[in-house]
């Protein structure tokens, strides 16, 4: 609050009201519903629901299918995060270093941010197309028959490639702006202190980038968990049962296709807890960021 804040009583209420109402109706109510219905089991014929306690949760804990999806989600998240962050770091360091064409490179490496995940998935479907896809052709040349949408591992591979491709720009933008915010004086001091460029990077630049990288870690995990929905939905080609999917995708298929409201809600709640933990981590990082800046 500003020290000479206005003291009109009604105006701020009127200003806040629209946002509060929308949040109440479209955030708190559904969030509450999710928690509430995770303790009920839907009658298969739609005649109401019965309270089943923590049953939906124990069902999850013992489901081998859920375990498989969770396993893939972890694997997928780690791989996508590591690959997209690593690639983006390499590109950002180079883009920060070159003198000529720096702006052009920046543009060329970030515009993919604007492509919607399902469109990225569709691009992937083209590249990996069974009949005409150039990557499929490339694999065929080496004697491997890639079958996206049919073979579990092949689909997983294609999903990872597309998801990494789509995420590189965000990481690139943040890492580049992190690099550029390192004061010139610090770089010059490092230049005087250390002859080796590689050592300078690991001793000076990388630690100074650490806050940005920590923060990006959370962003990437969130991306892999939630925002890849569109990529996955396109790439499983209507057949999620025999293809790799993530936890969020399962919430969707169980809830909307399987009509297992209770089970889907329980999964939602599990994800909520996960996101909550991530956010707490993020706030911890934020506190630590203050030390660096």
């Amino acid at each position: 609050m500003k020290r000479a804040a206005f003291s009109q009583p009604l105006m701020p209420v009127a200003l806040l009201l629209p946002q509060l109402v929308i949040i109440a109706v479209f955030f708190y109510w559904p969030a509450w519903e999710a928690i509430y219905s995770s303790f009920f089991l839907q009658d298969p014929f739609g005649f109401g629901s019965n309270f089943v306690g923590a049953n939906n949760y124990t069902r999850l804990a013992t489901s081998s299918e859920y375990a498989k999806v969770a396993g893939f989600t972890v694997f997928f998240t780690v791989i996508v995060t590591v690959l997209s962050l690593g690639t983006a770091l390499l590109l950002a360091v180079k883009a920060d270093k070159v003198v000529r064409g720096a702006k052009t490179y920046r543009t060329l490496l970030m515009w993919v941010y604007a492509i919607a995940p399902p469109v990225a998935g569709f691009l992937g479907a083209l590249l990996f197309d069974q009949n005409i896809g150039p990557i499929t052709d490339l694999f065929a040349f080496f004697g491997y028959n890639l079958q996206i949408g049919l073979n579990y591992n092949d689909t997983a591979f294609a999903m990872i490639v597309v998801s990494v491709w789509k995420q590189i720009p965000v990481n690139f933008i943040f890492l580049l702006s992190g690099l550029q915010s390192i004061p010139v004086a610090v770089r010059e001091a490092a230049l005087i202190d250390n002859k080796s460029g590689t050592r300078r990077f690991w001793d000076i630049t990388f630690p100074l980038l650490a806050p940005t990288a920590f923060f990006l870690l959370i962003i990437n995990i969130t991306y892999a968990l939630f925002d890849t929905f569109g990529v996955i939905d396109i790439m499983v080609k209507g057949n999620p049962a025999s293809n790799p999917i993530t936890l969020v995708y399962k919430v969707y298929t169980d809830g909307f296709r399987g009509s297992d409201l209770g089970g889907s809600s329980a999964q939602s709640v599990v994800l909520m807890v996960l996101v909550l933990a991530l956010t707490v981590m993020q706030f911890r990082m934020l506190e630590r960021r203050i030390h660096y800046t």
Partner: peptide, 19 residues
């Protein structure tokens, strides 16, 4: 207001749809 940052639409998608 700020609690809403904690939970993206995707995790409460089904009840949101119903509401």
């Amino acid at each position: 207001i700020f609690t809403t940052i904690l939970l993206p639409l995707e995790v409460r998608i089904l009840p949101s749809y119903e509401v």
